[in-house]
Amino acid sequence: MDKTDFLIDLQKKLKRYGVKNANDYLDYYSEYLDDLIESGLTDMQAIDRVGGVQKVLLEILSDEDVVIPETSKKAMGNLFLALGLPLWGPLVAALYITVLGLIFALLVCALAFGVAGVWVLISSLVVVFQMNVLYAMFQLGVALMLLGLGVIFEQLFILSGKGLFDSSKYLFQKFSPREAR
């Protein structure tokens, strides 16, 4: 981790916690690290001296009045959401089921291509002995294409499944009545 990484990381975390005058802190630590480096330390040593991103962040947060998002507004929003449930509920459900269906289709594609690929691959070995090498090559080519497609669909399935899971989790956290940590 060099100085720029440190500052970028710090900036990201300060932003996440909603520290208002983040730039002042970044300027201060940038200048300080420059001075340390000028005095003969390496980037790493300078960052070690300052104590690392986590420690600096804690120091800043303990000193700043970090504004935690209001819950009353959120409660009001939740009320409207609940009142509108008959309206948007079916729409969201339909969307969700559609997405689930698409993801399931990806899984089916992955399984179908994968099984077909393995089957054709095995049978291409048989073809070598039954017919000739050229036929076997043809079949091997088809088998590799099928296997490739199988793995591509499998990866897409995992990616989209994870995406759905993460976004569901995010939505759940966002709309759960408990206050965010």
């Binding site: 036929y135 080519g141 088998a143 590799l144 294409m145 296997l147 995992i158």
Partner: peptide, 25 residues
Amino acid sequence: KFNKNILVAAVLIFLLGAILMFISF
């Protein structure tokens, strides 16, 4: 697990298979 490298490898396998198929075809 999702891995970009695996996806790239799968595309490569697919292309390899396609080339092999077309040549022998």
